[in-house]
Simulated assay, not measured.
Amino acid sequence: MSEEKLYAVKNDEGEWLDQDRLWGPGTWATPDKDEREKVAKCYGGHVVTLIEEPEKVVLSKEQAEIVKDAHDYIWPAKHITERCGNSIGLEELLMNAYVNGYTVAKEKKYKVRVPETQTSYYYKGSDGHVHASDTSGGLDNEFSDYELQQYGLDGERFTKEEVTDDEV
Rank of each mutant, 00 (worst) to 15 (best):
Q19T: 06
E142W: 06
H131Y: 15
Q149D: 11
L153H: 13
L94Y: 14
Q149N: 07
D166P: 01
V67P: 10
L90P: 05
T30K: 13
L17A: 11
G125T: 05
Y123T: 00
E15F: 15
E142M: 12
V67I: 09
D127V: 02
H71C: 00
D20C: 00
T135I: 03
D140M: 04
E161K: 10
H46G: 06
A77S: 15
V39P: 01
V163H: 11
E3N: 15
Y98L: 08
K33S: 07
K106H: 02
W16D: 04
Q19M: 11
D140Q: 15
A64K: 12
E65A: 15
K5T: 08
V67N: 07
D140I: 02
I88C: 01
T164R: 09
W28S: 15
W16G: 04
Q19I: 09
G89W: 05
A105G: 04
A70Y: 05
Q150E: 07
W75Y: 15
L93H: 01
K109Q: 15
R36W: 13
G128A: 11
V9E: 04
D32R: 12
D165T: 05
E116M: 03
A40I: 10
L59V: 01
S133M: 07
L148A: 06
T30S: 13
E65F: 08
D127Y: 08
Y151N: 05
E4G: 02
P25Q: 14
E53I: 05
F158K: 13
V57F: 01
G26L: 09
L50P: 02
S136T: 09
E107K: 03
A8E: 06
W23G: 07
L139M: 10
T49M: 12
A77W: 12
K124G: 00
P115S: 01
A105K: 13
G85Y: 02
Y121V: 08
Q118R: 11
W16Q: 05
G137C: 04
I74G: 08
D166T: 03
K5P: 01
E167D: 14
F158N: 08
Y121H: 11
E52P: 00
K109V: 14
S144N: 04
E142A: 14
E91L: 09
A105P: 05
S126K: 11
A64P: 13
D145A: 13
D69A: 14
Y151H: 10
E53M: 06
G45H: 14
V47F: 05
V168G: 08
E35T: 10
N86V: 11
T81N: 10
Q19V: 06
H131M: 01
K106C: 02
V47Q: 03
K41C: 03
G137F: 01
E162R: 11
E15Q: 13
S60I: 00
V48M: 10
E65Q: 14
P115N: 01
I74F: 15
F158C: 09
A64Y: 11
G152S: 09
E167L: 13
K111D: 04
K78L: 12
S87A: 13
L59H: 00
R113I: 02
V99K: 12
H46I: 04
L94S: 12
N100R: 11
K38Y: 03
E142N: 12
K160G: 07
